[in-house]
Nucleic acid binder design. Structure first.
Lengths: 216, 216
DNA sequence: ACCAAGTTTGACCATCCAGTCAAGAAGCAA
DNA sequence: TTGCTTCTTGACTGGATGGTCAAACTTGGT
């Protein structure tokens, strides 16, 4: 094999590697942001590359210069998201005060729903379709983390430090309640009027709810 | 204009009117059932007429003989659903025992999530996309019903018969928690293993939760 | 200024998909 | 059987959309 180093032969900054140039960094970021906007509002099938490109201020072929395909954009978006998705639960500390830890977890999830509603809807869209692209992530990483934290919560219950409740359902309830404010925001706005923030009063309500439920 | 009575000029059994023939009734029912299956799994954009027709055991042009368009199928499906959707909340009785009424409402919604998960996902899909086709329904009928029942719950709180909680958030929480078991069933299955029913233990958990929260 | 690499795009192709149409195949009443 | 209506479908159209390509245009190092 002759000397000259192999030409890239793959899309610029394609795999995990950091983008090479400043232009790359800027455009890949723009594309992912635009894609988040479009995918979260229309779902995978409902989104078009043209829409994403326009939203990102690029032409369609230009977008396809940075990502191989619509699927590739979507995948990149998801894998960027998944790490952050676990973080709030990871922070639940087995050594902390049980009620404080659980309430803090709820608050972190609620904050994420407020700050990253598009990410939440993207995730919800995936799961509604049966989560084919998330199967690996959910049944390995997420499942392991949930099981681990569920054991912590179960122990707290056995030790009498909080009420004994099914820890999996407790975690699911936090997901359901907090994500509802992002995923169903459209409905909440229509019912309470667009002048309210959908989350107004949510934190107080949920704090009350979990305080009551976990009290011994 | 000559005598002969105007020919139908519209699709058979199109508007609210009952289907004329037995064939009509059978095929329209098949189509709507197939459409529910397909729309709830793939969303509106992700579904194709061909898919629905095949699922219903018809050819595409035959399906279009019964419904003007993909939109028409979807609309028919939604309007059939919306009535039933309000029913559980309608039954919440201002004259009943507060805790019993609220717990019963939660159980009715949970039962619907178990019995009609496809309907729940269809609804969720719509709202995720911003609910453009449900705007009228939500901001009029649903909103009016919710506001009315919220007043009932607020009164119960003022009368000291249950804890004082924000009644809108209470209703939203019941929606979030019960629908989660239908809409996110795929995720729950992956985390708890496919051998469990996603709803196993849910009723006990939710009963506990609301009993604790509403106790004075 | 010059060149090679990186970036951008207009034009294009292939496929998918909603919806049409005309002709044929049941159903059905007499 | 006859004749009319209802139902069914193969073949088609037009537009949307994912993706390609070669030719241009920038950029940055020398």
């Amino acid at each position: 094999m002759p000397t000259p180093s192999m030409p890239p032969a793959e899309k610029p900054g394609a795999s995990g590697a950091a983008p090479r140039s400043r232009i790359q960094e800027r455009n890949r970021a723009r594309i992912l942001d635009a894609a988040l906007e479009v995918f979260s509002n229309h779902g995978f099938r409902g989104a078009t590359i043209d829409q994403i490109a326009t939203e990102a201020g690029l032409s369609k072929p230009n977008l396809l210069y940075y990502f191989d395909s619509k699927d590739a954009v979507h995948s990149a978006l998801l894998s960027r998201l998944l790490d952050d998705w676990l973080e709030p639960l990871r922070q639940l500390d087995a050594a902390g005060d049980p009620e404080t830890e659980i309430l803090s977890y709820m608050r972190r999830k609620l904050a994420m729903s407020r700050t990253y509603p598009r990410e939440s809807r993207l995730f919800a869209n995936e799961i509604l379709q049966g989560a084919p692209r998330l199967e690996r992530f959910i049944s390995t990483e997420l499942r392991a983390l949930v099981d681990q934290k569920a054991q912590v919560i179960a122990r707290w219950g056995r030790e009498g430090r909080i009420a004994e409740v099914d820890p999996h359902h407790l975690i699911f309830s936090i997901w359901a309640l907090t994500q509802h404010y992002a995923d169903f925001a459209a409905q909440i706005r229509m019912i309470r009027g667009a002048e309210h923030d959908p989350q107004d009063g949510a934190e107080a309500f949920l704090s009350h709810l979990y305080t009551r439920m976990l009290a011994r």
